[in-house]
Design a protein around this nucleic acid. Structure first.
Ligand SMILES: [Mn+2]
Ligand SMILES: [Mn+2]
Ligand SMILES: [Zn+2]
Ligand SMILES: [Zn+2]
Lengths: 145, 145
DNA sequence: TCTTACATTGTAATTCTTATAAATTATTTT
DNA sequence: AAAATAATTTATAAGAATTACAATGTAAGA
């Protein structure tokens, strides 16, 4: 159930000086219930029924607050807008080059890469980023006319 | 010597209907001689002495032309501007979170990740992207006051 | 209640990149 | 070589995503 994790996120916020507001609750709720990787604008559009006066700046502001607290991760892609992920445990993404669909997957061992990079470059390595690109099943099927 | 690879790039262009112009030559020359990962604007600034009338659009246009021909790769980062790499053979990057320095490194085996992603998600996987983030030696030293 | 701190809103500004149209330059055709 | 065609550059406007800012609103603490 996504509600447990939503509650955990709310509790995490309470332990800071960040106040819970209706807008914040709605943004978090949307993130946890959709379980997708929405853009700021998608969130904004999804909530404009409930909050006709909400500013898009509020969405951006709060996503940054959530990021700082650590309950949301930002996924940045070159051309288009950032996407936001409420699953903060380590996992990777497969992205469809056709339709943009993003799917989570897990892979155990990439720490080896970090260690090698440290040795080869002399950097003190903290973390890494990886995505896999391809064609999703839906798009593959459509191509086969 | 970078000049051999520059010549190869020029030859690759000649085999298409793409014309060689002074601006194009200068952009390529800069890419191959600097051997860094400059932004479009860095290239533009670096060449404004030689080409006081060159438009920044020309830099962007030509970088796209080079990308299409396959002699340049675009590295996209979320917040800031794209960087361009004239080394198109497969390699990875370590990026300093402090100063933004980008250093190449090689790692043999990440095809395994692609295979696993295919099996787990049903995607037809084409390629992947990976970067490692940390602190470069220079920045590490400065922190130790 | 009064004061202070935090949030939201609406809008302007910023940044990076692309689109457009006119002017140049190069290539091909006559 | 001159004319026609195609590619390229330039200058500038437009676009999209995000942030900054100031005014207003709301909650918490004294
Ligand atoms: Mn995810
Ligand atoms: Mn590189
Ligand atoms: Zn797809
Ligand atoms: Zn550094």
């Amino acid at each position: 159930m996504a509600n447990e994790q939503l509650q955990e996120a709310i509790d995490a916020l309470k332990s800071t000086k960040v106040r819970m507001t209706p807008q914040r609750h709605a943004i978090l709720e949307y993130l946890y219930n959709s379980m997708s990787h929405p853009t700021a604008d998608e969130i904004y559009k999804a909530l404009e029924g409930k909050f006709p006066n909400m500013s898009v700046a509020t969405v951006y502001n709060n996503l940054r607050v959530f990021k700082d607290v650590g309950i949301v991760k930002e996924l940045t892609y070159g051309d288009s807008s950032s996407r936001f992920d409420c699953v903060t445990t380590e996992h990777y993404h497969v992205i469809c080059s056709d339709c943009g669909k993003i799917v989570d997957f897990h892979y155990p061992g990439l720490n080896e890469v970090e260690t090698l990079a440290e040795h080869v470059t002399g950097f003190k390595v903290d973390n890494h980023r990886m995505e896999v690109y391809g064609t999703c099943p839906d798009c593959s099927q459509q191509t086969q006319h």
